[in-house]
Design a binder for these strands. Structure first.
Lengths: 240, 240
DNA sequence: CGTCCCTTTGAGGGCCTTCAAACTGTGTGG
DNA sequence: CCACACAGTTTGAAGGCCCTCAAAGGGACG
């Protein structure tokens, strides 16, 4: 039950022929159930698969010389990790499951071949890559200019928007399977301070916390506070 | 005297036929001499051109609600701003010259058409985009986990590597046309603190400062301090 | 000689880190 | 059913990094 297929995700960016879609889906992809903390891609290894998250959350992270973890990107259900596909060498980061997760793996060889020969497929991957580039740019702004309180607010607004897009949020409420240490590694903060800020956001009435869930209570005020612009959704079928 | 041509930059990532190269270079591109602070691309405008920096430095920046500037990316000589090419809508950020700069503008229409029809061109842009994605990822690590002193060291090592790649650095010495306020906006720090840290790095003997130039005196120690891995150079002609 | 831009220095305070430890809930084994 | 381990959350106290406001110093240019 692969809810999110590679062809469908690409098709959003650039309409593909049925033949190509079948080719993409059929090509020996397989699905794995991963335990929390299982590695999806290991640094230094040759890249063999393009992963797609079906359920659960995963993270792309890197380590500082002294062993602190920096989470570069969060992978939510529906996300395609296309980065390794185009990299020239083994990746320098690790991709790991943050919760138990279901991930579909597509072998890169047939995909690379398709990109080589089919301009529409190449264009679709190009749009996908551009989309992710834009997402990364939007992470820079909070890291550069916002304070802890606002960083967390920005993250919650972002997660809400992304999860809403795949039907996993309702009425401002969305799953939050990450513990505070993981949030800290994603925001460049410290566990203890994440806790204090969360409590303050709760006391201030901006968010409500339940085990495993967050509810955004005052979306408008938070969005204005942090300059959050709802990220443009991938189009239903776009141009170039 | 366009030192850096679009076709040559793309050709590094994916070998292109001479015909395509001519097509890319010929298509009505033009060159402009921009004064410092002139805008290269304006937010909200439809995207008409792909800029390539020939000389001088430019910046992609965004503003917080209260008007603080966050510099997302620095454009150095030879850099191609391909982002706008694939964006679906007007960009949300501003691109501005940080020094007087020479920039070549390529109209997007013919390029988009080429991408649509030529898989090799699309693949080349895909690799270019992936390369820039990786660069952005490498900016996240210092922002997430390093302190001011290390952030600046990381930036200097990065700039040195990039300028060295286009022959603008020698013996650890490279141009530094940015003032301290601009460095601050790039690192998420404050002007005054940038100044204090720079002085300290100078006193510590890690760097030397002259007007308009920086010299890295102890590359090895700094690189180890911040976990800097020399960025993989774009290959001479790569795979997928 | 005055203006402008940038750099530099000082003083004070706040955000966030750091170290430490208690508290809570959950699963496991006796 | 209780004891215990374990993971995660929460709270306290102290201190440092960095911000903020303010202003002086230096060089380029008219």
């Amino acid at each position: 039950m692969a809810t999110f297929s590679l062809s469908e995700r690409l098709d959003r960016f650039c309409a593909l022929s049925d033949e190509v879609k079948e080719h993409l889906n059929g090509s020996n992809s397989f699905q794995r159930l991963l335990e929390s903390r299982a590695e999806v891609l290991r640094p230094g290894e040759p890249i063999a698969y393009v992963p797609i998250v079906q359920s659960g959350w995963i993270a792309t992270y890197d380590l500082t010389p002294d062993g602190r973890r920096a989470i570069l990107e969060l992978g939510l259900p529906g996300d395609v990790l296309s980065g390794p596909l185009h990299a020239r060498e083994p990746i320098g980061y690790t991709v790991q499951a943050l919760t138990s997760a279901t991930v579909t793996f597509h072998p890169v060889e047939p995909i690379v071949e398709l990109i080589r020969t089919n301009a529409r497929v190449a264009a679709a991957f190009l749009r996908l890559e551009t989309y992710q580039h834009e997402r990364l740019q939007e992470r820079l702004l909070p890291l550069l200019q916002l304070r802890s309180y606002e960083k967390i607010a920005h993250l919650f607004l972002d997660l809400h928007a992304r999860l809403d897009a795949v039907g996993m949020a309702a009425n401002g409420r969305f799953p939050m399977p990450l513990n505070q240490a993981t949030l800290a590694d994603h925001l460049g903060m410290h566990e203890v301070h994440v806790n204090r800020v969360l409590r303050r956001m709760d006391d201030d009435g901006y968010v409500a916390r339940e085990k495993g869930y967050i509810t955004i209570l005052d979306h408008a005020t938070l969005a204005e506070m942090v300059g959050f612009r709802g990220r443009p959704r991938p189009p239903r079928h776009g141009g170039a």
